[in-house]
Structures are given as C-alpha cells and as structure tokens.
Design a protein around this nucleic acid. Structure first.
Lengths: 242, 242
DNA sequence: AAGAAATCATTTGTCAGACATTTAAAAGTC
DNA sequence: GACTTTTAAATGTCTGACAAATGATTTCTT
C-alpha cells in the first residue's frame, strides 16, 4: 500500500482508497483487524489525525467498524443487507431529489423493477408475506388515513411483494427504488376515489400472487403504474394552473 | 442541529448525521457552502479535528466536496449518476462476496432486472447503443480472447442493453447488479462451444431489440439465464469433484 | 488610468503532542 | 479459587501550530 505524493487527492482519501482496494480485492478479510492507528500512521508516514480521517471515510461506507479498548481497533466489517439498504436509500433519494428526476422516469423504473419480481413472488411468497400484503390493503381502506400514512402503507405493501421473490439481492436493489420514491409520492393527494381504485388494484395483485399467477400480477402492476402516472399528472397539472 | 451527549455514537458520527439529515431534508441545498470548520467546531462545541472527521464521512458518500483557499470550504455536492454508480458497484460487489451469495441468486436477480429493461430498450434504444451491442458481439467472436476480456465484453453488451431503456434511474439501479456479478462470472471458464452458444443468444437478443420486439428479447434473456446457470453449475460441479 | 505584481486574509490540509475513556488481560488479595 | 485492583493498549478528543492554496486587496509600475 503506497501513496502517490503527486496526486491531487488528500492523503486521507488516498489512504482510504488503498485500504478499500485491499478489502475489495480480498487482501483484508472479514473481521480481520487493521493495524492500530499509530501503526498505520507509521506505515503510511502520515500523522494519526490523517489516518483517522481515512478510517472515518471507510466507516461511513460501513467497510470497517471500530472498537475501543485494549483489544480494540478497526475491523473489516461484514457488509450486511441492512447497512447496504440504508445507504442505497439515502443515495437514491438524493439522486432523485437533486437531479430533478421526473416523476414519470422514477415511476417507470420502479414499476419495471417490480414487474421483474412479480413472477418470482407469485411462486415463492411465504404465507407471512402474503398476510402482510393483505394487512396493508386493509389498512389502506381505513377511513381517516392521512396521505402520508397511506403512502407508507403503500411502500410496505410493495416491499412485501418484492421480498416475496425470496431473493435478497433483488430486495436490496429494489429497496432504493421503492423507498426513494416516497418523497415524490408524498406530493400527491389521494382522493377517496383514487384510494378506492388503488385498493382494487392492490387486491388484484395480491390475488394474483396468492393464486401463483405471475402474468396476472404483472398486468396488475402495469395497470397500477398507469393509474399512478395519471394521478400524478393530474396533481401536477392542477398545481401548475394555480 | 444538536448533539446527544448520552449517545453511544462518536461525536463525528453524530455531527455527520446531523448535516446529512439537513441535506436530505433540503435544509442545505446543492452548492450551498457549509460554515467553515472553525465555525462548525464552535457551533457543535467540539474541536476542529472532530469536525473534520465528520466532514470526511460525508465526503466519502459524495454528499459534500471541499475546496481550499480564501473562498473555499465544504459545499453540498450535487450527487451525480456517476458517483452513485461507483458507490453502488462497490457496495454490491462486497455484499455479494462477503455474504456468500450464491451464483444462482445473483444470476436470477440480474436477469430478472434485465428483463425489466428489455421491453423499454426495444422501443427506445438509440442507434448508437445498438451499434455498441453489435460491436461487443463481434468482439466476443474473436478467437484468442481471454475469459476476462470475454466477461468484460459481456458486461459492456448488457450495459448497452440496459442503457437502451433510456431511463437513468433504471441504468443506475442495474449497474450494480450487472457489474457486481463480474467477479463471479470471472470464475467461469468459457469453452469455444460455450462462447458460440452465448454469442448466438446475444445475437438473438440484439436482433429482437433492433426489431423492437420486447417479448422476444425477454425470451432471449431467459434462455441466456438458463444457459449461464447451467454453465456455472457445471463449472462448480467440476471444481467440487477435484 | 490600466495593468501587473505583491501582499493579505481566509480556509482547508497536515502535523505533533497530550489527555480522557474504554476495555481486556494481568497481577494481586482474600 | 473467586474477587478486586492494576496495568497496558487502543480509540476518542482536544489544543495549538504551521503549510498550502486561492481569491481579494493593495501597491507598484508604466
């Protein structure tokens, strides 16, 4: 692990990259302890604060964890789905909000990905996941539900659908797409009639999943996508007129 | 922005979280300059090194960028697709390698997602993207190509397919899935006959995309998935026997 | 007056050294 | 042997300093 003194990058960034490379390449394996900060500062010929900045960079990506005390230090972290989820959601949310991604673009991506899950979910979903979907549908039918709560329930419904595919990699990839859209969805106000339509489509999708009918679930999702986009278009049009 | 003195978390982690929340909530907008490190250390009542560790955490997630000099400082960064890509790829790669995700699981996720893109790609792909696909097919037919180069070309082919959907959100979501699988794919050795079969399927997919026939492209991808999984199963079986 | 050069002020990057805190192991005590 | 105390090692935090970059200001020159 060597540094390039001519590089424009900060020393701490270079050190972080060197360690990151070692982890990705497998030179440092999970739960392996890195040298202490003092040792690293000697190895890289930099001060301890600089080493620490590098380690914090890696900690921000959940690549390492640190522990205080006699046998403490920095350890290569086993990246788990939960950490990866939350990072992905933060990144996706900001990506959408900062780049003025249109509602249509985000919506299209989301439903395209969900349709990819539906056939798998139709054959594999657990009883529990199906029950979650049904429960969320029930919740969505309750009167007096705020728009935000309706949206949150919508997300929960779709997550259950996605998780039903029983493929953690798919769930991970989709968590970002579904959750990152929530701020956009929250801009929509749902009339009682809108909710009724969505509810009916959710029920249709859940029925298809329960029956193991993948293609029908896909069709239901497509119908839901059309409905969502129409709804959003109306809301934005009304807002523009004002 | 306040800190919780009872929290178990490091001060730098708390400060980073506070600033991160402010960015996600939109309280800090793109290109806005944060207070200087000296000012932040006064605001949060911590020392400058601690503030710096917090800023490095945010920089690691591409949430801020820093500039030296008189009018320098830390600025809220516009998260672009490129940065998000590379983060996603790193995360996905480690997630797969560290959690012993099976080849089948990763493969299934990847092709499910690609099938989600295919219909869109069939109607929207640019001439340039189609040309890229054809060029990669041609490259894959060249004799003397190493397995690694073959895999790299395969990734390029599939990226062109995905990008053809013309939806940057989809491209971003899928970049991770496709590229993260490369290390797994690199474990496979492709015989001349394997390559011929893959080549034929690639050609079929490209033809379908060119003809605007989404369903046929989807079928081609399914066939390619079956082929890939069969190939991998053989390789792993042979390796287990040894 | 205009332009070039020098200076200055501000800000991040880096360093050195110190102390506080946490933690596990070692040593001591009953 | 069980419990307590001590010790050592590591991270967490602070202080203060200087280096380097960079835009703004001032000064000098023509």
């Amino acid at each position: 692990m060597k540094l390039d003194p001519n590089s424009a990058a900060d020393l701490s960034a270079q050190i972080a990259q060197a360690i990151r490379d070692a982890i990705v390449a497998g030179d440092l394996i999970v739960d392996e302890r890195l040298p202490s900060e003092a040792e690293l500062s000697e190895q890289f010929q930099v001060s301890r604060p600089t080493v620490r900045e590098a380690l914090k960079r890696l900690a921000a990506q959940s690549l390492i964890r640190t522990q205080r005390g006699a046998t403490g230090g920095a350890f290569v972290n086993r990246l788990n789905y939960e950490d990866a989820y939350s990072q992905q959601i933060t990144t996706s949310t900001l990506l959408l909000s900062m780049n003025a991604v249109s509602f249509d673009t985000a919506c299209e991506a989301r439903y395209a990905l969900e349709r990819a899950c539906a056939p798998l979910s139709a054959t594999r979903r657990s009883a529990d996941q199906l029950a979650t979907m049904r429960a969320e549908i029930f919740r969505q039918g309750q009167p007096g539900l705020t728009d935000e709560a309706f949206c949150a329930s919508d997300v929960a419904f779709h997550r259950a659908l996605v998780d039903g595919a029983g493929n953690p990699v798919l769930s991970y990839q989709l968590a970002g797409a579904v959750e990152a859209m929530q701020p956009l969805m929250n801009m929509i106000t749902f009339t009682a009639r809108d909710r009724q339509i969505i509810l009916a489509l959710h029920t249709r999708i859940a029925d298809a999943i329960e029956a193991g009918d993948g293609p029908d679930a896909v069709q239901g999702l497509s119908a839901l996508e059309d409905e969502t986009r129409k709804l959003a278009a109306d809301v934005f049009a009304a807002r523009a007129k004002r």
